[in-house]
Design a protein around this nucleic acid. Sequence first.
DNA 1: GCCAACGTTGGC
DNA 2: GCCAACGTTGGC
Length: 177
Amino acid sequence: MAYWLFKSEASCFSYDDLVASPGRSTGWDGIRNYQARNMLRDQVKKGDLILFYHSNANPSGIAGIAEVTEEAHPDPTAFISSEKHYDPKSDPDNPTWFQVTVRAVQPIEPLLGLPDLRKEPRLEGLELLRKGSRLSVHPVSAEHWSVIQELAGLDSASATSATTSKPKRPTRKKTVS
DNA sequence: GCCAACGTTGGC
DNA sequence: GCCAACGTTGGC
């Protein structure tokens, strides 16, 4: 199980928007950067946990936790000409761009602001905090994850309970999509 | 392959 | 809105 940070412009799609989505879930579409694409496509796995970061926001910061519910599949918005992130060069038979599906797990209220993250010495090395960093999908180490849970006032038990307290069911094929 | 021009991201 | 830092594009 791995940890990630996903950025979203809050005015475009916020954590509240995710919570309000059907099934508290959405396809993480619109990624058009190869480095981020490669991680989405190759490394982000079902069950991984995500820090949902509001960029270009007032204030910017981590607004909640989400989880990966479906691994990489082609990003349909790349093929729709009316979409903002339409890419005419992407071939449906050999897609360039991918998305994963994510579901809201736990909001962080109040949001854990960027200045709070910057002043925590234990978060040194977090990609988000690197000068000039623009990567909208990147890994978070288990150590950094744990520090952020603490700063957010979530102990690791409560953060995982949201995913582990669900009734266990035998694995089965999806019947509805 | 180099690199200048341009577009985008994202903090402030 | 400003601007620094990146990523991409395209001429050569």
